[in-house]
């Protein structure tokens, strides 16, 4: 479906068993499998954490502070007296939620902008293109800092997602617009136009399905970018202070100089999860890239 035009020429007709084909393709795409496996590892960690710990263990002064890992506290306790495993169990999904919320908003806005400006062109396209060109040269973190300090009172996890989403549409708009410009010239789009389909119909029925693998790849990249931005803001101290997100855990580590104090059990779990998350998302986007761009498929 993604590669209709080439598929007709090169590939044998699609077999009846699409599920089997999909599974076979997954087996060839090692990056995608490795990436999914890493994310699954994080899910497993959170599941185990939620069985072993109680949400109340992640509150300050729940236990004796700064204890190394033991049978009772698998990952030890932090300076504030929280059980670190409980903190991680609560914080990991929160950070992922920030990434997914902001990434989703970014991709939705980006897709709409990209298709409208790319397909219709004109003044709207000029404005979108200039805005993206100018804004992408500005260091995003600094703009987000100004937005974050403008939020009155204590920030919630949802507010954090919305702050990060403020610039999350830039990347998707730029990448998808370039693709729209390319496929707009394709024969099947012209054919659809000749057969009398309206603009929105062509976009929704012809172009979006064809760019779907691309949009999914962009979505993963934009989730990863949103997580990165949220971690940066939180590490500086502009995050939801009441929450236990991964970035806030890093912030408290910096605040209490956990490294110099030798509390390795406090700073290493958030870093491990963040590394797994980023490498996992990176591998998935590489794998999706191969799917979206058949020319990269070497092992077919």
């Amino acid at each position: 479906m993604a590669i209709q035009s080439t598929a007709i020429l090169e590939a044998p007709p699609p077999s009846a068993n699409r599920l089997r084909d999909t599974l076979l393709y997954f087996r060839r795409n090692h990056a995608l499998i490795a990436g999914c496996a890493l994310l699954l590892l994080i899910v497993l960690f959170v599941v185990v954490g939620s069985i072993v710990t109680d949400p109340d263990d992640a509150r300050p002064l729940a236990f004796r502070p700064s204890q190394p890992p033991s049978a009772e506290h698998w990952l030890g306790t932090d300076r504030l007296g929280k059980d670190i495993l409980a903190v991680m169990t609560e914080g990991t999904p929160q950070t992922i939620r920030i990434g997914v919320t902001a990434g989703t908003i970014g991709v939705l806005i980006g897709t709409i902008l990209a298709f409208f400006s790319g397909y219709y062109g004109g003044i709207f396209d000029t404005i979108t293109r200039s805005a993206v060109d100018i804004l992408r040269t500005v260091p995003a973190l600094l703009v987000l800092i100004i937005i974050a300090i403008s939020v009155p009172g204590d920030m919630s996890v949802l507010e954090m997602s919305l702050i990060v989403a403020a610039l999350a549409w830039l990347g998707p708009t730029r990448v998808l617009r370039a693709q729209v410009l390319v496929i707009r010239q394709q024969p099947y789009v012209e054919m659809a136009r000749f057969s009398g389909l309206s603009g929105p119909e062509i976009i929704i029925r012809e172009m979006i399905p064809n760019l779907m693998p691309f949009i999914v790849a962009v979505y993963i990249t934009s989730i990863s970018g949103a997580v990165l931005a949220s971690l940066g803001l939180e590490a500086i101290g502009l995050g939801p202070f009441e929450a236990n997100t991964l970035g806030m855990t890093i912030y408290w580590n910096i605040w209490y100089a956990s490294l110099i104090n030798g509390w390795w059990w406090w700073w290493s779990p958030p870093i491990a999860v963040i590394v797994l998350l980023f490498v996992g998302l990176f591998l998935i986007s590489q794998g999706l890239d191969e799917w979206a761009n058949p020319r990269l498929r070497k092992r077919v």
Partner: peptide, 27 residues
């Protein structure tokens, strides 16, 4: 793969290995 990980987190790991465990560099 490293380039997928934010550099400051890499910094914490380097700091731990080369300044805390083996104090070759300042903390």
């Amino acid at each position: 793969t490293f380039s997928a990980v934010p550099f400051y987190l890499m910094g914490i790991i380097l700091l731990y290995i080369f300044a805390f465990q083996w104090p070759i560099f300042p903390l």
